[in-house]
């Protein structure tokens, strides 16, 4: 971690608001990207990135520097997103084809799939990869984001997810295989000009 970041962390730990805001500025893209890759849409990504920074702010006095600061905040962000994904899995599903109840109240429905206006990725291929990522299970998506996007080591992933190294290796292998199959199928659907050479 650069010295400047270290100083900001130390000042933030002592309650320096300006220093923490500076830290947010330095890491907001990284935190936001993790949240977006895991949640698949910008609304959730923005909410969960903010929640992650709030958790970081609250946990900062206890940051002992055992791990690098960036790994530590990725760890928190991934776990905030995982908690939200788990909550959603536990939530009962509601059929949109049937009336909610007799008094005619309505549900606010938020789509987890990115809408056309949300697809900020630079080109169609990147959007396609994100769609493939979104279609994977939460566990596969999480381990792929940690490994391929944040370049975390097996050990760091194992610690963040609370599982063994063997589990990380096997889960990552299956996640890569699943992603490869999804992308291969999607590539066949792309117009020939957009296909990447194998």
């Amino acid at each position: 971690m650069p010295l400047e970041h270290q100083l900001l962390v130390e000042r933030s730990k002592k309650g320096d608001r300006a220093a923490f805001e500076h830290l947010v500025q330095l890491y907001e893209n990284k935190v936001y990207t993790i949240a977006y890759r895991l949640m698949g849409n910008h609304a959730d990504a923005a909410d969960l990135a903010q929640d992650s920074f709030i958790k970081i702010y609250q946990a900062l006095p206890n940051f002992r520097g055992d791990a690098s600061f960036s790994t530590w905040i990725y760890h928190i962000t991934v776990n905030v997103c995982r908690d939200e994904l788990r909550k959603r899995q536990r939530r009962p599903t509601v059929s949109l084809d049937e009336p909610a109840n007799d008094n005619g109240s309505t549900y606010e429905v938020r789509s987890t799939a990115p809408g056309p206006e949300e697809e900020l990725d630079r080109n169609e291929t990147q959007a396609m990869v994100q769609r493939c990522l979104n279609s994977l299970s939460d566990d596969y998506r999480t381990v792929l984001v940690m490994r391929e996007i944040k370049e975390m080591s097996y050990e760091e992933i194992a610690e963040a997810l609370g599982c063994s190294l063997g589990t990380v290796k096997s889960r990552l292998s299956r996640a890569r295989q699943a992603l490869k199959e999804k992308i291969s199928k999607q590539m066949e659907l792309l117009p020939p000009s957009n296909r990447l050479a194998k």
């Binding site: 907001e28 936001y32 990504a45 900020l120 990725d121 990147q126 990869v129 996007i149």
Partner: peptide, 10 residues
């Protein structure tokens, strides 16, 4: 392809 996904700004 996954690794090349860009970093996004909030």
């Amino acid at each position: 392809l996954l690794q090349e996904l860009p970093e996004l700004a909030p």
